[in-house]
Design a protein around this nucleic acid. Structure first.
Length: 654
DNA sequence: ACTAATGTCCTTTTT
DNA sequence: GGACATTAGT
């Protein structure tokens, strides 16, 4: 296919955006309007026009999105370009990591600085929390994750601690002074161990852009900067962009303010709303939806007051399904999914979406019971498993001997070494100039670390050696050692795909595999599986059929959002994102009662859910309302009645 | 000084 | 059902 023909396939607006020449460009792309395709065409256009690939900076939300973009651009550019590689494409954080490494000397960092993932950062805060004596106050001090969240929010909004506490963490406001001291200590400790957390990656990049000479050097690396999902960037990221392209020339951003769902991460919708004025940008709006049928869009439009239209006018109306409880909800989903498969819709073209990751618990049990394969995105990550972190700690410590967090974790693997012992060993290690050949912990760990810490040791084989050392400890520490050992073998396989230790470790911190299937690789790719995902993780994706769980007040919107109007609006957008993932089949499920596991003092463990405030008359008018009882429920009903009509029960099941 | 067992309090979504 | 603090036992 020639490149010209490829561009003919775009509609007029998309083509205009793809071929735009001039200053800053804002592409407002509603859900399903071909955003990725348009951006990929723009990339192809720039390449065909002679911009070298290494002069394109492509900032996407995930690395997966970046790869997809590259793949499409290559296809579009066709034979004109043999192979397209976009070396500068990735998340803000991963690009920051590379730029900082490139200029580390100019910002006072060692080449071997580490990147702390969220768990590591929280652990470090926890250590300081104890050191400062906050853990044994009469009143409970915020937990480590909360502390980190507060810190992060403040950094990313660039506001004051006071503002952050007021707006998002009011229940922690009384601890303001202690938190301030804690964060001061946290910053100091990170500097001394040469470790950067996610926020530091942005802060360092931001600081580099504030230095005129550095900003020029970095800005000159790129001719074009393209940013996807711009509605979910924060103030810091917007300022970085301004530093990269001060006048806006060569800057393209794409987004949809109706899909802004990351305010908890301090994303600011104002970025996209103010972009046009800020950069005197040209604006192209894409409004024709190519994904969903009109009935699906009608419901989504009614929810959010948009006016997306589709060429696919016919189709079934979305269903609003009332079910008795969690169990019935799972029954309904399973039954529907299997029916669709019978009609020829592969499982992987169907998805189940939910507000928070534990909402799928009951469904997952049911899927396992019925032997239906599935993959879950979002929620508990492979890399957060203790045994995986143990193994990585060994490598991280070897990579950056000053990395105290990793060192403590590694040292405490040795039986007989606890927090106090680790402290002792590390202090001596520090005094000896961080030399692994003089580490005195336990004989076998000393040998391992001397091996890993030797710069002459090749990367190939390090993982295997570490795993072999770890194996006996794994069996000692955990019950299901078999399963966990399997995880470690997979980790080893991934590691082998990286050319060096530093890039492997950064990648694991910055863009960890999203689901266990990502790790399994080839063998699983042929298999069919149902997709389970949080709505957040479903961003940018689409499926033939979509089920949305727990559409009731307290879940949509989440009970934590009900207090504030702006948060409720974000929840509305979240439901909007979920609904617009569906091409033809959409089911919203609403359990009449659901079980609560928390804070239920009384014996009654279920609550009657209220209808979601988003299910207004206007929205429901676009849907087909049905009630569904699972077999158990029906059974219970039947039991209270006489006579027992077995025949109708059998019929009602099909 | 370390480990295991018990008690108490819970804020969701992710780079 | 999990995180975290406290207590009891080695």
């Amino acid at each position: 296919m020639g490149a010209m023909e490829a561009f003919e396939r775009l509609n007029a607006r998309q083509r205009e955006a793809a071929r735009f020449e001039g200053g800053a460009l804002l592409i407002l792309a509603g859900a399903g309007t071909g955003k990725t395709n348009t951006l990929a065409h723009r990339v192809a256009h720039l390449l065909l026009r002679g911009v070298p690939p290494q002069k394109l900076l492509l900032l996407t939300f995930t690395r997966r999105a970046a790869l997809e973009m590259t793949r499409r651009a290559q296809r579009i550019a066709g034979e004109a370009l043999k192979e397209v590689r976009l070396p500068w494409s990735g998340t803000f954080h991963s690009i920051a990591n590379r730029l900082i490494r490139r200029h580390c000397a100019r910002v006072g960092l060692d080449e071997s600085f580490s990147v702390l993932d969220r768990g590591d950062a929280a652990d470090l805060i926890d250590v300081l929390r104890h050191e400062l004596g906050f853990s044994k106050a009469e009143k409970r001090f915020p937990r480590k994750d909360t502390c980190l969240a507060i810190y992060s929010h403040r950094v990313n909004t660039q506001g004051s601690l006071e503002d952050t506490l007021q707006a998002v963490f009011p229940w922690c406001a009384e601890w303001r002074d202690e938190l301030s001291r804690l964060f001061k200590a946290y910053v100091e400790r990170k500097l001394s161990i040469q470790a950067l957390d996610y926020d530091d990656l942005l802060l360092y990049w931001h600081a580099m852009m504030a230095d005129a000479a550095l900003a020029r050097d970095i800005g000159e690396l790129f001719e074009h900067v393209l940013v996807d999902e711009y509605q979910d960037t924060n103030v810091l990221q917007a300022e970085i962009l301004k530093g990269l392209r001060p006048g806006g020339a060569g800057l393209t951003v794409v987004g949809d303010d109706a899909q802004a769902i990351y305010s908890f991460r301090a994303a600011s919708v104002e970025n996209i709303r103010g972009f046009e004025a800020q950069f005197a940008a040209s604006v192209v709006a894409l409004e024709e939806n190519y994904r969903s049928t009109q009935p699906v869009l009608d419901a989504a439009n009614a929810l959010i007051g948009k006016n997306l239209s589709s060429k696919r006018k016919s189709g079934a109306r979305p269903r609003y399904v009332t079910v008795a409880d969690d169990q019935a909800q799972a029954e309904y989903v399973v039954r529907n999914v299997l029916e669709a498969r019978e009609r020829g819709v592969l499982l992987r073209r169907q998805a189940v979406l939910f507000r928070s990751s534990h909402h799928s618990d009951v469904l997952e049990l049911e899927l396992v019971r019925r032997n239906i394969p599935y993959v879950k995105y979002g929620g508990l990550k492979f890399l957060e498993a203790a045994h995986v972190k143990d193994l990585l700690a060994l490598l991280r410590w070897a990579d950056n001997p000053k990395n105290r967090v990793a060192a403590f974790r590694a040292l405490q693997l040795v039986p007989g070494i606890g927090p106090a012992g680790a402290e002792r060993v590390f202090t001596r290690f520090e005094a000896e100039g961080f030399s692994f050949s003089r580490l005195k912990s336990a004989a076998d760990l000393d040998a391992l670390m001397a091996f890993l810490g030797n710069p002459q040791t090749p990367w190939a084989g390090q993982m295997q050696r570490a795993r072999e050392w770890y194996e006996p400890h794994l069996e000692r520490r955990y019950d299901a050692a078999q399963v966990r050992a399997g995880d470690l073998t997979q980790l080893e396989r991934i590691a082998s795909q990286f050319s060096d230790r530093e890039s492997f470790l950064s990648e694991m911190a910055l863009d960890p595999p999203q689901a266990t299937s990502d790790l399994a690789g080839a063998p699983y790719l042929d298999e069919d599986y149902l997709v389970l995902s949080t709505v957040h993780s479903a961003k940018g994706q689409e499926w033939e059929a979509v089920h949305i769980l727990n559409v009731s007040d307290g879940n949509f919107p989440s009970e934590f959002a009900t207090g504030r109007a702006d948060l409720v609006e974000e929840e509305r957008r979240l439901l909007y994102v979920a609904m617009t993932r569906a091409k033809t089949d959409l089911h919203l499920l609403s359990p009449l009662k659901y079980y609560v596991t928390q804070q239920s003092r009384m014996g009654d463990r279920h609550v009657y859910g209220a209808k979601s405030r988003f299910m207004t008359r206007e929205v429901l008018a676009c849907m087909e309302e049905i009630a569904f009882y699972d077999s158990k429920e029906a059974e219970a009903k039947e039991a209270t009645k006489t006579p027992v009509d077995v025949a109708s029960r059998l019929r009602s099941m099909w």
